[in-house]
Each structure stands twice: as structure tokens, then as C-alpha cells.
Simulated scan of single mutants.
Amino acid sequence: MAKMMLFRVLAICVSIIVSGSSSVGSDSESLLTCSKFHFEEKVLEKLVRFEHLMEINEEKMNKWEVKLESLSSKIDEQMKRWEDTFLSKLDNMDEAVNETEAFVKSVRDIQLQEQSRINNSYHESVEHFKDRSKNESEMYGQQINAMLESMSSKIEEVGVAEKKRGSSMELMQYTFQQDQRRFNQSFDLFLENTKLHANKTINELFAKQQRVAVTACVSSGRIFPDNVVRFSTVNFHVGIDNLDTFKSSGKFVCEIPGLYYISAHIYTRTQGQVFYVKKNSVIIASSASDSDSTYSTNPISAVVELQLKDTLYVNAGHSILATYSCLSIMKVI
């Protein structure tokens, strides 16, 4: 391989020299300053350098061949060691298999011997049991006959006692049913009372927790025909279902029993006129307009206990002005 490469390189060099010589000859006429010997000297210098490079490459190739031969020998040695190890392990496995087969054979022989001994012992035990059972059966037969006769007489006695017990059980069952009926009635009555009491307590607690309030004002000034002041402009309300009735009649109807607080401010130009807070037509608070001023704003308030359907309202028999006449009712408890 190296010789072929060297031959190719020499051929290339010769061709370069020939072409260079011809080129030099042709150009010598036009370029008098270029020397033919100078050109050949440069070509030879390049050939020497090229040969030096070829020698370096050939040395590297030789080193690689040495390394490859060394690696190949190491691989052959390792493969041989692995082969020897594998064969040794196979021999050990063969020995283990032979020992296992010998152990299994010995165990099988011992098992057969033990099985034979157990079978012989079993047959002897069965024969002995048969002989003993035959003798004991005759003895037990006599004892059983005596026991049966005794049991027959006792069964007759038990039958008589059972009849007596049956009549007693019927009487006890009747008494028990009567007591159970009375207990059920009492228990049902107790449950009903408990349920009613619990419902009442829950309703009371629920009513106490419910919020009821309203704030309203007079929409237009006038004298109301039945003296019940209508606060028809509702600014705030909560917990009231019959709000339309309150706006049209002027009467607050209690939907949730409890303690209520009522406060009103009556603005009027009538001097020294009395007005009232009434519960179910009964006066619970009263106030009067100022007797000195033409226009006056007059407060009135009260705390009252209301039950379901009770009414609460302001009664005034004189002119009420709309600007500052307002009412507030709130459930306290």
C-alpha cells in the first residue's frame, strides 16, 4: 500500500517538473528576469518537503498497525479467559445437577419406606378398633335401652308440665299485650307533647331571631279622614309581608310576636294639637304640637309588646305636613 502511494507521488512530481520546465521555457522569452534554475530549485524543494510528509505519515501508519496488533492480541486473550471461566461454571453446574438428582432419589426412597410403615400401622389400628367397637357396642346397647326407657317416662312428665306452662304463657302474653298497649299510648302521647313543645320553642326562637323594621314618611300633607296617619312613602323595610296594607291603611299589623319600638315625628302648623300612638285602638303614648310656633316638629315614641295580628298606628285629628313627618317601627326582641 505504501509503495503504491509513493509511486503515485513520484509520478505527480515528474509531471509537475515537466509542465514547469515547459512553462519556464515559454515564458523566458517574455520575462527575462525569471531564471530556469531558480524554478527547478523551488520544485525540488517542494518535492523534498512532500517526501518528508510522506515519511511522517508512513511512521504514523506503522504505529497504528502496532497498536491494532496489540489490541487484537488482548482481545484474543480476554476471549480465551472468558471461555475458560464459562467451561468451569458449566462443570460446576453439572456437578450440582448430579448431587440434586442423588438427593431427590434418596428422599424418594425414604418416603416410600415411611409410607409403607404408615400403611401397616393403619391396618393394625383399624383391626384393633373393629374388635373393640364390637365389644363396646353390645355394652352400650344395653345402656342405651335403659336410657331410652328413662327418657320416655321423663318425656311424659315434660308433656304434662308443658301443658301447664302453655296456659301460663297465654296468660302472661295477654298481660304483656295489655301493658304494651298502655305503654304505646302513653309513649305516643309523650312524643306528641314533646313535638308540640319543641315546635313551639323552635318557632319562638326563630321569631326572636327574625328582623322586622320599617321606616316611612307622609307623602302629601293633609287631614286624614279617619285620623290614622298614612306613611305611604316607605324608605326601608325588612321582615314585613303586608307592606301594601301598611301603606294604604297606615296601620302596622304584627306578623311576628315580640317587643317593638315605635318612634314618630309629626310636622304641623296647627298649634297645641294632641296626637297619639295606639295599639288596637288603645292609646299607649301621646304628644302635642307646639302652642307658640306656627310650624313645629313633634316627636313621640313608645315600646310595646305585640302579638300576632295586633295593630300599631299614629292617630292625629289635625293637618299633617309631609316634609318632616316620618315613622319608624323596629322589633327589639
Rank of each mutant, 00 (worst) to 15 (best):
L44C: 07
F7W: 10
Q209V: 05
T33H: 14
E114P: 02
V234D: 01
L306Q: 00
S15I: 15
Q173E: 08
K279Y: 03
K3P: 04
I56E: 12
S232I: 00
N119S: 13
T311Q: 12
Y295K: 00
L53M: 06
S15F: 05
V282T: 03
N199M: 11
I202C: 02
D76G: 10
T233A: 15
T175H: 13
S263N: 07
F206M: 14
N235H: 13
G25Y: 10
I300K: 00
V234R: 00
E55A: 11
S125F: 04
S70R: 09
A2L: 11
Q273H: 03
S73D: 06
A213F: 07
S296K: 02
F183L: 14
L171I: 09
L10G: 10
V229Y: 00
S23N: 10
L44A: 15
Q143E: 06
D91L: 13
K164A: 06
V66D: 05
I283M: 12
S167H: 07
F236D: 09
A288W: 00
E156P: 00
M147N: 04
S167W: 02
R181K: 09
V107E: 15
L205C: 05
K89P: 01
V332N: 03
E51C: 06
E156I: 04
S72C: 05
L196E: 15
I202M: 09
L306I: 00
E136P: 00
V24C: 12
W82G: 04
D310K: 10
A2K: 10
R117N: 12
H123I: 12
E124S: 10
R165E: 09
V314R: 02
V274E: 05
V238T: 15
I333E: 11
N119E: 15
V107R: 14
F224K: 11
L31G: 09
N298W: 01
L87P: 01
Q113C: 02
D290H: 03
E58S: 08
V277R: 01
I155W: 01
Q180T: 09
L71N: 14
L87W: 05
G272P: 02
K89E: 13
V238W: 07
S73T: 08
A322F: 12
N184A: 13
G141E: 03
E45F: 04
K89W: 11
I118R: 14
E157D: 04
A285T: 03
S26E: 03
K46C: 04
E305D: 06
L189K: 11
N57K: 12
D27N: 07
K74Q: 11
H52K: 06
K67R: 15
L191I: 15
E149G: 07
T201V: 09
